[in-house]
Design a protein around this nucleic acid. Structure first.
Lengths: 208, 208
DNA sequence: GAGAAAGTCGACACCGTGTCGAAAGTCGCC
DNA sequence: GGCGACTTTCGACACGGTGTCGACTTTCTC
């Protein structure tokens, strides 16, 4: 009755916990090893099922990752929705917005790092990420325009292009920081530095 | 006499062209497919040798990629060395510096995109990239400090942290643009937008 | 308690990787 | 001109992970 029995959103009454167990087992494994080094065998074992049972729930590892991505971006969007629009203290508003990404992705560091890698290869991930991040870019751009109209932001030739660049920065900074790459920002500095660059770029000064 | 016969810098007199042919065949293949989809078979065929002969020259696909990375960053460093220090027109200087990255990586788009992906998995790539980008970050940071001393740059609390963020932005913007991801900057806009964000962040204004 | 649907399992074929040992080619030197 | 050492090539093998298939079991429903 519902979609194909193998699809990832089967919403089957029972077996639902299995699906959840698989996702969690995968995330747990991801904390210690890269996706390429994790065999489906191990995910299945972590979820207490056999390897072929895994295939009943997901067509591949990548599909599990897509599920993980969905959860994370949904949470980001939910939290962003509660923030509203910039008020008297725009720096605080930007900081809060950026903080949502730092917090949500920071809670799933290994998944974030894996996502950044797998996105290049897996079309579904790539498309889903494109959809979501396009919305964030547009949100940023329209806020910049609004701030400009209020006379607070500096003159920016192409607000959309600028917001693409700023969002790209956040993404890469977070991944590098989570992945403990070098050079990378210390976890405690990420939010401060990103907010500083954003505000300076948008207003010409870090404290508008 | 030289290092191990299989290592990547064997500098063997003959067979050197083979090595080069392999590297080139790989880059060519990379233009049409992702690394994961390219079998060593095909690289070998492209270089007109057998699969096992491939292993005589390189221990793996990743090692070929490392060679490609080396070439690119070497070229970047050579070009950067000719630029000198900022003069009367600092915006032009930053633009020229960023332009080196845009140009060199732009000439090897598929390699750049592949590198960004494989770096997460391959320790050698990760380390090499870390070494190189640390130097660029330090170059950026010391230039910011120098510009501050001359009284041109704005007050920046942690110049190194800021330069990490700016360099991270460039990296991600370039990869997204080369990989035709969405949202991404159009190739023609990349240099303008990056220069704008860098200068505004460093000086408080896009045209210092 | 019969039948369909959901879930599980072991077995199989496939493909790419990396390794090994043997063969063939190349070069210098007596 | 032929001997020996080194370089290069090759075919064959074993291994490990993937995805699929058909059969078996459990569970739910009428």
């Amino acid at each position: 009755m519902t979609a194909s029995p193998r699809g990832r959103r089967a919403s089957r009454p029972s077996g639902d916990e299995r699906q959840r167990a698989i996702v969690e087992a995968f995330e747990t494994l991801l904390r210690t090893r890269a996706m390429a080094d994790i065999a489906i065998d191990e995910i299945a074992a972590g979820a207490a099922i056999s390897r072929s049972a895994f295939y009943f729930y997901f067509p591949s590892k990548q599909a599990v990752l897509l599920e993980l991505l969905d959860r994370m971006v949904t949470e980001v969007d939910e939290r962003l929705a509660t923030i509203g629009v910039p008020g008297d203290d725009p720096a605080a508003w930007w900081r809060a917005s950026i903080g949502v990404f730092v917090a949500v992705f920071g809670e799933h560091r290994s998944v974030t790092v894996t996502l950044a890698e797998a996105r290049a290869t897996v079309p579904e991930l790539r498309d889903e990420w494109a959809r979501r991040s396009t919305r964030w870019v547009e949100l940023t751009a329209s806020t910049i325009v609004a701030e400009r109209r209020r006379g607070r932001a500096r003159e920016i030739v192409d607000p959309r292009a600028t917001s693409i660049a700023l969002n790209a920065m956040n993404e890469r900074v977070l991944v590098a920081s989570f992945g403990a790459e070098l050079p990378a920002l210390a976890a405690d500095d990420v939010l401060d530095v990103l907010t500083d660059v954003w505000c300076t770029t948008i207003y010409g000064t870090p404290r508008p």
